[in-house]
Design a protein around this nucleic acid. Structure first.
Length: 885
DNA sequence: CGATCCCGCCACATT
DNA sequence: AATGTGGCGGGATCG
């Protein structure tokens, strides 16, 4: 085929065009010559095209060796062609063509015929699914490539994915060993376990499985993080050589990606994963960049992987309808339950066997990864045990993969979490979308319904995101959220101190339902603080009630995930949130998440909180631009968002100097001291999208309100999206609470938000947040501002902000800027770090919070306080709703 | 026009 | 240095 094309093509275009054009031309006119006289001339020279095409052809025909030769030959060809052959050839071809013209067209064109999926099917057809154990089938890449008539590069794409599932393993250069699907079940099981650990935790949190987990998580991170930085290496290293490998090439990202991708399916209740979510989740490390391109690249890779998995019959393409529209997604159609061992004869218990050495080893890695906290430790040991295997590549795939994964995981955990969150969110979205509810308010929808959604319904989400989604309603968002966020943050915060924040990441933190927004709430003030948690709870309840309002706003946003966490607060929050969720599941709220964390301890202290908050904030900043958080605060102040943001930004830039933002913050603080809450978001990496943050403070009241159902959230929060991503828009409203002026504000806010999200954003990330409640209800203004902000992308943020501890922190308003940038800054190190930073104390506090939440009294108190907030919140909600509308 | 994703350049790893 | 691998993203094709 190629040949023909070429010949034809030759005339015109060398390489690429060949096929199509040529065929057509020929078809039309026999004499292409006339047409391409000049070209002919060219052709000769055009070695390029000829060679390639020819080569391919040849290659395919011939053996590897041949191919080389042929390549050489090709060189010659051009010459031949150039002179005359073109015409003649073409003629000949034509002749042929005559008959086949149609054929030509038929054959050539279709891109589909050359699709990776089809290629993979051909590849798989060559080998038995369940080969006899005795027979060892070795695969020669060159051979296969030639047989299938494709370049070797393509085969790598296939083999890498198959290797990730252990269907094949690399034996040597150019040589792979075919294992078939015997171990597939085991592998999937392992992946599922690993996935649960990684992603699951998050989910779990959210869900409620165990608060503990959350805590753990947080702790882990903390612990790990610190070490982690190093550790990670180890971990990584384990896999291969770790650091080297890790650092060095991305190594096997395709393999890792593939495994992670599969994990997402296995962990997802719905068994449906949208590409964008997956991409975000998988982005991890990189934080930096921005992403957009990164995101695109990731998606591309996912398509590659998906094609192979589709050929394996593990997934199928579906579309999820969301508010926005329909998104491409894949549904897992492979085995879901993995009894002990599945196919394989042996069955080891999954868990038990570590056997690294063996095939199973692969599993092990996963497990390891999964473990999470332990990870580090284990890994270490693990590593020790297995020193690097050889070098990176090592033959056996198994080892590598696991390792790799670990690495990734490790790194990614955070990401994962975030991702998870996202997923959930997305799922939620999906669900929502699909099913039901419309978006109006996204938030709402989220909440309520999730279940319904059909499509997704099933699964949806919840599982995945436990957090949000499912629970949504229940969730108490607030707490949960906060807590989550906090965790990560906390550590981060600590780190932050340094200045760097390492936060990282994002850990995961929250997520919100998809799109929806999220909110986070913050904190609350002192009073609240203590109560905060309670508040949250209240919030939840209230929120539900209140919620309504909120939702709308929330709804709009879709953003995604978010996460983040500011430092300490975050931690708390998250956990709390999770807990809440769990606990409260009942609660209607949904979304929101609040955070709050601080409150607790520090906050309570009151001012102290400030400190805390500050820290948190810092963390944020660090993370990303955490500034946002501050901003949120600012918002409270009333300023318009824009301004606030800007200010913040500026602040960020000059951390030391407080810019206005700071001032504001201070104000805020003054006003309310609160703290912080926030969340953060992940940066880039994962999601691209979102970043966010939030503020915290929240008014308790606000929270409360909402309650009920809806989630309202109170939180001020924000988010941002990254432009790139786009995906998420976010928004947030801040505050909530007060009833501020409702309408107007609302509008603004809404508008703002919206705009925000998007537009401005586009650029980057924008974000921002809302604010808090406590303070005055200034609410409205802020929102409006936001929109503008987006514009700037820039951001930057100085992480500095973070610094600010106390008052300052607040300030930090947000930042936003590009998400990327910001993010990166922080992230890099941070990611992992964060956790560590977080301190238990915080956690505890946070945790406590939740507990506190529980207290009715507290709640009540909060309410009182909140009242305003609430109102504002409500307003916001209203507003938001309006705007959306 | 967005979703897909082929194609192959080119950097990095391995031999 | 040669060759194997595989990240990556331009840009073509599909729907």
């Amino acid at each position: 085929e190629n040949i023909f094309d070429r010949s034809r093509m030759a005339p015109k275009t060398p390489i690429k065009n060949e096929p199509v054009d040529l065929s057509k031309q020929k078809g039309c006119t026999p004499e292409r010559n006339p047409i391409t006289p000049v070209k002919l001339i060219d052709r000769p020279q055009p070695d390029p095209w000829t060679p390639t095409a020819n080569l391919k052809m040849l290659v395919s025909a011939a053996s590897p060796d041949m191919r080389d030769r042929e390549k050489k030959k090709e060189l010659f060809r051009p010459i031949e062609n150039s002179e005359q052959s073109d015409t003649p050839d073409s003629l000949q071809y034509d002749m042929v063509d005559d008959c086949t013209v149609d054929e030509f067209e038929k054959q050539r064109p279709s891109r589909k015929q050359k699709s990776l999926g089809l290629l993979c099917q051909k590849f798989l057809a060559r080998y038995p699914s369940y080969p006899l154990s005795t027979e060892k089938t070795t695969i020669s890449l060159d051979e296969v490539a030639s047989i299938l008539g494709v370049e070797r590069r393509r085969i790598y794409d296939i083999v890498n994915v198959l290797e990730s599932l252990h269907l094949v393993s690399r034996v040597a250069k150019n040589q792979y060993c075919w294992h078939g699907r015997h171990n597939l079940s085991q592998t999937l099981k392992t992946l599922q376990e690993a996935g649960e650990l990684q992603y699951g935790e998050l989910m779990t949190f959210f869900q409620h499985k165990e608060q503990d987990l959350e805590y753990k998580f947080g702790e882990r991170k903390k612990e790990t993080i610190p070490d982690s930085q190093d550790r990670p290496l180890l971990d990584f290293s384990e896999p291969d050589c770790t650091s080297a490998s890790a650092n060095s090439r991305k190594d096997k990202s395709l393999r890792i990606m593939s495994q992670k991708f599969v994990m997402l399916f296995l962990v997802s209740k719905t068994k449906i994963v949208t590409l964008d979510i997956a991409a975000k989740i998988l982005i991890e490390e990189t934080q930096d960049t921005v992403d957009h391109s990164k995101f695109k690249t990731k998606v591309r890779r996912l398509y590659d992987i998906a094609n192979v998995l589709t050929s394996l019959g593990l997934i199928k393409k579906v579309h999820v309808t969301e508010e926005r529209g329909r998104k491409p997604a894949f549904k897992w159609i492979g085995p879901v339950e993995f009894p002990g061992k599945t196919d394989e004869p042996r069955g080891h218990s999954p868990t038990s066997d570590p056997l690294p050495g063996t095939q199973r080893g692969a599993c092990a890695p996963y497990q390891i990864c999964a473990t999470g906290k332990q990870r580090f430790t284990r890994h270490a040991s693990f590593n020790g045990a297995q020193p690097c295997e050889g070098t990176r590549r090592k033959v056996s795939s198994e080892p590598n993969s696991p390792r790799q994964e670990r690495q990734d995981e490790y790194c990614s955990k955070m990401i994962n979490l975030a991702a998870v969150c996202r997923q959930k969110i997305e799922e939620d979205k999906t669900i929502f979308n699909s099913a039901r509810k419309p978006s109006i308010t996204s938030p709402l929808s989220l909440l309520p319904v999730p279940g319904d959604s059909e499509f997704c319904v099933n699964a949806l989400p919840q599982a995945v995101f436990p957090v949000v989604q499912a629970d949504v309603p229940n969730l108490s968002l607030p707490n949960g959220v906060s807590s989550q966020a906090l965790h990560p943050c906390a550590p981060a915060a600590s780190k932050t101190e340094n200045g760097k924040p390492t936060l990282l990441p994002n850990q995961p933190f929250l997520c919100f339902p998809s799109s929806s927004l999220f909110m986070l709430c913050g904190g609350l003030q002192e009073n609240n603080l203590r109560e905060t948690l309670p508040t949250t709870g209240d919030v939840g309840n209230r929120s539900a009630e209140a919620q309504a309002a909120v939702p709308p706003a929330a709804c709009q946003k879709r953003s995604s995930h978010k996460c983040a966490s500011p430092s300490a607060p975050v931690d708390d929050e998250e956990p709390a949130a999770k807990k809440q969720t769990m606990e409260q599941s009942d609660v209607p709220l949904s979304l929101v998440v609040p955070k709050k964390p601080f409150e607790s301890p520090k906050a309570e202290s009151t001012p102290g909180s400030g400190c805390t908050s500050a820290e948190h904030l810092e963390a944020f900043h660090l993370d990303h631009a955490s500034p946002a958080a501050p901003e949120a605060v600012h918002k409270e102040s009333t300023k318009p968002l824009d301004s606030q943001e800007q200010e913040r930004w500026s602040q960020n830039k000059d951390p030391d100097e407080p810019s206005p933002g700071k001032e504001q913050i201070s104000k805020e603080n003054a006003n309310q001291p609160f703290l912080p809450q926030y969340l953060f978001v992940q940066p880039t990496a994962g999601l691209s999208s979102f970043n966010f943050l939030f503020s915290a403070n929240q008014a308790p009241g606000a929270i409360s309100l909402a309650a009920s159902q809806l989630p309202s959230l109170s939180v001020p929060c924000v988010v941002v999206p990254s432009a790139a991503v786009a995906s998420f828009p976010l928004v947030c409203s801040p505050t909530i609470t007060g009833p501020l002026s409702p309408v107007p504000d609302g509008s603004f806010s809404a508008a703002t938000s919206m705009n925000f999200s998007m537009s401005g954003l586009a650029s980057t990330t924008p974000v921002f947040v809302g604010t808090t409640a406590v303070v005055t209800p200034k609410v409205s203004p802020v929102p409006s501002v936001d929109p503008q902000q987006p514009a700037h992308p820039t951001l930057h943020l100085s992480p500095v902000l973070a610094r600010s501890c106390g008052a300052v922190k607040l300030d930090s308003p947000v930042c936003m800027g590009h998400p990327v940038t910001l993010l990166k800054l922080q992230q890099p190190s941070s990611t992992p770090l964060t956790p560590k930073s977080i301190r238990p104390a915080h956690h505890e506090a946070f945790f406590k919070t939740p507990g506190s939440l529980g207290d009715p009294v507290a709640w009540k108190k909060n309410e009182g306080n909140q009242t305003r907030n609430a109102s504002s919140v409500q307003r916001r909600l209203e507003i938001s709703s309006t705007s959306p509308d």
